[in-house]
Design a protein around this nucleic acid. Sequence first.
DNA 1: AGAGTATTTGACACGACGTCAAGAAAATGC
DNA 2: GCATTTTCTTGACGTCGTGTCAAATACTCT
Lengths: 199, 199
Amino acid sequence: MRPREFDHDDVLRIAFDQFWRKGVRGTSLSDIARDAGVQRGSLYNAFGSKEALFLQAYERYAGDYLLALQKVLGAGSLRKRLTAFFDLTITNFRTGSPPRGCPTTRGLMELGAAEGEGLDEEARQAFANLISRITALVQDALSAGAARGEFGGNPAAAALHIITVTRGLAVLERAFGDEPQLRKIAAHTIDLVLDKQGR
Amino acid sequence: MRPREFDHDDVLRIAFDQFWRKGVRGTSLSDIARDAGVQRGSLYNAFGSKEALFLQAYERYAGDYLLALQKVLGAGSLRKRLTAFFDLTITNFRTGSPPRGCPTTRGLMELGAAEGEGLDEEARQAFANLISRITALVQDALSAGAARGEFGGNPAAAALHIITVTRGLAVLERAFGDEPQLRKIAAHTIDLVLDKQGR
DNA sequence: AGAGTATTTGACACGACGTCAAGAAAATGC
DNA sequence: GCATTTTCTTGACGTCGTGTCAAATACTCT
């Protein structure tokens, strides 16, 4: 056995950074190879394909991100939790310059509509999976809030609504790049859901 | 002067159909040329570049789409208008098999985060422009509704919120392809905005 | 030390984008 | 009616990206 000459995790991080900034289709394996100081062929040998490499890098990101969300969604009043949740969400795709956007949303929209086109079904499931798990976290927070009388609606419906808004924010971020506006929408959403419309 | 051997508008329609289904990056000019029965070089001669061709095709689509929206947002009670608006929105990216998704959202997420990457600034403005104009239409409907006592909130904030939800729906459509779920979210959003939370 | 095995490396085939020069076809002027 | 001109068309080219393969390489285990 000959040992790898590069660190698996280093490559994963470097690759995801590129994918995040430029999208999967917009990132070439040559770019990653150059950045990581690895030969292009070695990447194919180690990961099989660009999509497989992306998937591994994405899973890594998804795990980290879920942990961070779990943290902010688990402490404080419901309003505080939701505020922190939106905050982390917006911060997540507003970091970097230019801002990197939301990798999940970008990945989803990069999917080919037809079969075989672009990213494959496995990637779609990875994206859907992260969204589902985030939805579950939000729903848990809402249910906990309901138990404490901080919320009187349907946790499942409200969680879905909140998630939809975060996905929409990811899109508007791309369109306008106007962070204050995103935060306003987030605040408004919290008001709507908590039924204090601030009028 | 030698006349064109193909119809400008035909090509635009054929091209946009492909862009819509497979994204800009996922569509090759060879595909379009084959589909349209035109030589690839002729497309370059007539449009200049893939992005320019996309932009023209997109503007065409945007105009049609705006007209349709204007129609449904201008008649009936506010609730009816919003329902028809969400209906048209969801129908728009659920048509075709497999569903084609939302071209605006896809286009936005295909944009390169950095300069020079992928679609250029002009495309971003075209996307942002359509979103802005749709927002304005929704806001008009809300204002009209407010004048008739059908709505008591802030039209600008509510319109922005609604638009955000539609962008989120476009993303969730990609993730889950679950049309009934999308419609539920839409209905819930209308309830929230009109302040009848259906509890 | 030697054999085995996985990794690295460079070359290859293929397709896509965009450019360019040469050929083709119609409108205009004489 | 014919030549000219102007535009469109056509095919070839260079570059870059993806993915494959066989040969060379370097480590490990016996």
